[in-house]
Computed example of a mutant assay.
Amino acid sequence: MSDSRADFLAAARAAEQLLRAPEVAEAWRRPSALAEWSVGGLAGHLAFQVLCVSEALAAAPPTETTIGLLDHYARVAWVGAELDADINVRIRQGSEAFAADGPAALHRRVDAAVAELTTALAAADGTRPARLPFWGPWSLTLDDLLATRTMELAVHADDLAVSVGVPTPGLPPETADSVAALLARLAVRRHGWVGMLRALSRAERAPGSIAAF
């Protein structure tokens, strides 16, 4: 069975290696593969997926009842939002600001956070409530929060690698499976079970897309 803490750390280490790639620094101010994102902004967004876990662990556990992963994705404002929606503009601007000190400084912050989290997560209770302040007034278990960050790390590492022309970082099989499982659940939520079934088994009846988002 996959371990959410091991999965997160594996994805975080892969992202840290990508962030130190010279191709990322060289392309820092260029447009990325994502519309309206620079390479530096995308790197900042990738780094944030690690650094925000340190913030969540440092905060006092929230007192509200935790919700499930699919309920979480039903509430977040960015799912289904247009590129120029206020939430997406704020995410892009925040990511650019996060990376404002440049690639070397960003990489050092992530490197330090990964080292700190390797110890902190080993001692953490995966069932404790945890929340990120920009979500809204709800929390997840720490294990579920880590699952959301692991998926974000995998997706945005691919975005960044494509943007600078380097291979997408590999993940251990267990971690890749956990990311695929979460994306599959979200795809079923969006497109329905039959759409997922056909996309994976019957190309002639497959829908045009089963993208999770």
Rank of each mutant, 00 (worst) to 15 (best):
T118F: 06
L200P: 00
A85Y: 05
A6I: 10
A58P: 00
L57I: 06
T119P: 00
T65Y: 02
R198L: 15
V89W: 01
I67W: 04
S139V: 07
R128A: 15
A47N: 07
A14L: 01
R108F: 07
P137R: 11
D3E: 12
P22V: 14
G41T: 09
D159C: 10
G192L: 11
L160M: 08
A43L: 11
L182V: 13
R128S: 11
H156Y: 05
A14K: 00
W193R: 12
G68P: 04
I210Y: 04
L18R: 02
P173W: 11
E96F: 08
C52P: 00
A10V: 11
L69W: 05
W138E: 10
R149E: 08
A211H: 09
P172V: 13
D143I: 09
A25C: 11
R189T: 03
A21S: 13
V164N: 03
D86W: 02
L146E: 08
T175A: 08
D71P: 01
A130Q: 04
A157V: 10
A21R: 02
S38M: 04
R131K: 13
T150L: 14
A81G: 06
A97I: 03
I87Q: 05
A60Y: 06
D101I: 06
W193A: 15
L70R: 06
I87A: 12
V110Q: 03
S139Y: 00
S32E: 12
R128Q: 13
A120N: 04
F8G: 10
P133A: 15
A154R: 07
A85M: 09
A180K: 04
V155E: 10
R13F: 09
R189H: 08
W28K: 02
L19Y: 09
D7K: 01
A6W: 04
D111W: 08
M1K: 02
T63G: 14
A104M: 08
L83T: 13
A21P: 00
R30P: 01
Y73I: 03
A85F: 09
S95I: 05
A47E: 11
A25W: 05
D144V: 05
L69E: 10
D111I: 03
L182H: 08
E64F: 03
F213Q: 12
L70F: 10
E64Q: 12
D144K: 00
L9F: 08
E82G: 14
G126Y: 01
W37I: 06
L46I: 12
F8V: 10
G94K: 00
S95G: 09
P167L: 14
H45C: 10
L132W: 11
A10H: 06
H107C: 13
P22Q: 13
E36I: 00
R190L: 14
V179R: 08
A99F: 06
P62S: 12
H72V: 06
A25M: 11
A27Q: 11
R90P: 01
P207K: 00
D158Y: 01
R202F: 15
S4N: 05
F134V: 15
A105V: 14
W135D: 10
L171T: 05
